[in-house]
């Protein structure tokens, strides 16, 4: 591979144009997402702490189950979203008569996810600063027979001032880095699907803006 990540960051057009001359490979994108996923798993470990603590009194061992589940889900989730984003871009570009393979699209979306590593790192640092300040309500055995109690406890956890601030900051960080990635995805999709830059921008901007709106809506209703 002659291109470096610096080319991707500074000269994305040249990077993706050059990539088209090479054999399709998702190894490096998969590694990029693996790094992002590992950091994300560490974040999940930290963030699941209050929930695990809240549920600890409900059933013996549930605390460990929650944490053990959260870590692989975060790791696998990165790859699932990789495929979903790719699928959406691939499908939308189909409307613009795009003609490239799914694997190539998967490859460019993977490369375009490079900023997510930095985003995950920042999220992890924020989590380590904020989550220990979150005081989780403790559920007891009695709550197992009363779903309202569990609902109240979950609401209390969500409405915890530290948790609310954490969610807001993390949302902004994730929006910021998704937008950063989206820029690369537009250039990559242009070449991967052989469509115009305008069409590629539409294919990426529509779902990305949609996702940002969902994140903001979640913040409002929370």
């Amino acid at each position: 591979m002659k291109r470096s990540f610096t080319d991707l960051v500074l000269r994305p057009t040249a990077f993706f144009a050059g990539l088209m001359g090479e054999k399709e490979s998702v190894k490096i994108p998969a590694l990029i997402l693996l790094v992002s996923g590992i950091i994300g798993a560490a974040t999940a470990y930290v963030v699941s702490g209050p929930s695990a603590k809240m549920m600890a009194g409900l059933m013996p061992g549930i605390e460990t189950i929650i944490i053990i589940t959260a870590v692989p889900v975060a790791l696998i989730g990165v790859y699932i979203f990789w495929v979903i984003w790719t699928g959406v871009f691939y499908g939308l570009s189909y409307l613009f008569k795009g003609n490239g393979t799914f694997k190539r699209t998967l490859e460019v979306v993977g490369y375009g996810s490079l900023p997510q590593i930095l985003g995950s790192l920042i999220t992890l640092v924020i989590s380590m600063l904020y989550i220990p300040r979150v005081v989780a309500p403790q559920l007891t055995n009695a709550a197992a027979e009363n779903p309202q109690m569990i609902q109240d406890a979950v609401n209390a956890l969500k409405n915890n001032p530290a948790m609310m601030e954490y969610n807001q900051i993390v949302s902004i960080v994730s929006i910021l880095f998704i937008v950063w990635s989206a820029n690369y995805w537009i250039f990559g999709l242009k070449y991967a699907r052989n469509i115009s830059l305008r069409d590629a921008a539409v294919c990426v901007c529509v779902p990305v803006v949609g996702m940002i709106l969902i994140v903001m809506y979640t913040l409002i209703v929370m």
Binding site: M164, Q168, I212, M216, L219
Partner: peptide
């Protein structure tokens, strides 16, 4: 500290989206 709506993150989100969409619009 905050009003009922988390205004700061919403404004930040709108600015980011505006910059992203607007930037591409002008670029194209």
């Amino acid at each position: 500290q905050t009003s009922d709506l988390p205004l700061l993150p919403i404004i930040a989100g709108i600015i980011i989206v505006g910059a992203f969409v607007g930037g591409w619009f002008f670029y194209l």
